[in-house]
């Protein structure tokens, strides 16, 4: 694999020759990707290239069927793990379209998620007081309206609030591997800055992030270690942060041409 040659931490995710179908259609056609602790990867590509499929199949969305290849997360075969187990093991997906749960209060939902994680780790459920305190800090961190956590999950939230709520959940759950599926899309410039700021604050040497994005602009705020370009179900190019700038300047057609007719 090309890119920066500095050695990072322990491998967190290793994807080998991954083929994925949705229905009868093959969407991913042999993906290879290694993500080590402390790294931020950006996966870029035009609409329909398979970016969101990659994020969703890693999280275990039922309609995505792995037909070949492997996904190894922290030494475990992901395809043998139920979605909730992947989550409890620290794999987090910030949804492109966060789901509304009418009547379920956001804080209640988060408390259930935190407790599921803790019980999985052999800990006690978090006390209400400790949880309140922690939530207050995280709410401040992602600059979200404190009132949102008292409302039903995502119900009546604006597009930007939904995305920020995803980052709040990420801040609360502190995942080992965060997959951010087009978290930047639909955000105005202020919201983008706040979301990016939240993500940067959560970045540390023991975790890793994969940003799935269509545009370069979030990378003005978050500097990735690697940029991968996905085209028609394959990673056709990998480079450093400057690759994103080059893409922005030259467009995806440039990659299509240089990737060659064989891709």
């Amino acid at each position: 694999m090309a890119g920066k040659d500095q050695t990072n931490g322990e491998p967190i995710l290793s994807v080998r020759n991954l083929h994925v179908n949705v229905g009868d259609q093959e969407i991913l056609k042999g993906i290879n990707l290694t993500v080590n602790a402390g790294e931020v990867h950006a996966i870029m590509g035009p609409n329909g290239s398979g970016k969101s499929t990659l994020a969703n199949v890693l999280a275990g969305k039922p309609e995505y069927i792995v037909t070949a290849g492997e996904m190894v997360y922290k030494g475990q075969d992901l395809s043998r793990m139920a979605p909730e187990l992947r989550a409890r093991e620290g794999l987090f997906l910030a949804f492109q379209y966060p789901v509304e749960l009418p009547g379920v209060r956001a804080w209640q939902f988060l408390k259930a998620a935190v407790d599921a994680l803790r019980v999985h780790q052999g800990q006690e459920e978090m006390s209400a007081r400790e949880f309140d305190q922690m939530l207050k800090e995280k709410v401040a961190l992602v600059e979200i309206d404190p009132d949102l956590v008292r409302r039903s999950v995502n119900e009546g939230f604006s597009g930007g609030e939904k995305k920020r709520n995803e980052i709040l959940q990420m801040a609360v759950l502190q995942p080992t591997l965060a997959l951010l599926d087009e978290t930047d899309s639909g955000l105005d410039i202020d919201a983008l800055r706040i979301v990016a700021n939240g993500i940067n604050q959560l970045r540390n040497p023991s975790n890793a992030m994969v940003l799935v994005t269509h545009y370069q602009r979030i990378l003005d705020y978050i500097t990735p270690d690697y940029v991968h370009v996905l085209l028609d179900g394959l990673i056709v190019r990998t480079g450093g942060a400057d690759l994103a700038l080059e893409l922005e300047a030259k467009g995806y057609d440039w990659i299509k041409e240089t990737a060659g007719a064989g891709a």
Binding site: E84, F92, L93, F95, L110, A116, L117, L173
Partner: peptide, 13 residues
């Protein structure tokens, strides 16, 4: 299914 998957992705059975 989307509602259930969203919960599962947060570790909830």
């Amino acid at each position: 299914d989307d509602e259930v998957f969203y919960c599962q992705q947060r570790g909830i059975s």
